[in-house]
Nucleic acid binder design. Structure first.
Lengths: 157, 157
DNA sequence: CTCATTTCAGTGTTACTGACATAC
DNA sequence: CGTATGTCAGTATCACTGAAATGA
């Protein structure tokens, strides 16, 4: 009828609802800004791990980036096709590939990182610096708790 | 190689990463516990809106629950098939349906709500009561900001 | 033999897009 | 006419499952 867009109290009282909604906004901002330069979240996550930990196997890459191994395979193939990463067989363990970032990949990572910094500002716009650090501190606490607890992990397979 | 599952600093410093990861844990907990009783998140969201705002049109239902109209159609059909909601044509505006919750739907909502309360406890386990209210307060601030700002909305269509 | 790694094909939820018919 | 509603079909991202082939 009218433009009443308030969620029911049953939802507003649930932290899972709040965090899912905020994550939804973050996801849409990310998809919009990354999509404008032809990138996806998996690309940034993969490049960030390669820059900090690579050369590395795809399995370890997935553990660092919280990605399933099958998704790592696809992301690395896409990055390699664009010359942003290289995939070569591991001679010391022939089950594995060794994935490394190229110079073009480092440039791409720098570009995407700047885009992401803009998104952070947009997402947290209404909060003061103190509130932002309080929020990130609490979220980091939850993350480290569940990373070491029995909570299901995305990279379990 | 070893079981190094630390994310790169480039990711850990991004609030979008933190909130997306926490949302991922919440999503997995929700999917697991709701799935055990044959429910999905859309079902709870729809029932919660119907209990608080219904009888209501599907378009308004979607605005309250932050759901796309096409997803509302599917969710209402599923709930109606289980006798948890009713859908009848609106005689005063023949474009619309009027959706309402049944007694079985209210019982189901109460069951799902208890499940969700358990999930909240599991998600926020490491935080004190003060920290929990600080976190939910900050998330709610972000939500109301983006709900009234130019940030893309899920129910825009 | 067991386990780990890579790859492939496919599923599921949520979110979203485009189209259509209908009706205000 | 433009706008809103409901429905349908299909897509995208991310997350995940199962299986196969290879090799430690």
């Amino acid at each position: 009828m009218t433009n009443a867009d308030d969620a029911p109290a049953l939802l507003l009282g649930k932290p899972t609802w709040l965090v899912n909604q905020v994550s939804g906004y973050a996801h849409r901002l990310l998809a919009t800004h990354l999509g404008q330069v032809g990138a996806r979240g998996y690309h940034f996550r993969t490049l960030a791990v390669l820059a900090e930990f690579g050369p590395i196997s795809q399995a370890d890459l997935g553990r660092h980036a919280q990605m399933d191994r099958s998704d790592v395979t696809a992301a690395v193939s896409e990055l390699a096709a664009d010359g942003l990463a290289e995939r070569v067989p591991d001679t010391s363990d022939r089950r594995r590939n060794v994935v490394s970032i190229t110079q073009a990949g480092r440039d791409r990572l720098r570009q995407l990182d700047q885009i992401l910094d803009g998104v952070q500002e947009e997402l947290l716009a209404p909060l003061t610096a103190e509130e932002r650090s309080a929020l990130t501190g609490l979220l980091a606490r939850l993350l480290s708790h569940h990373a070491t607890a029995g909570t299901p992990q995305p990279w379990a397979g």
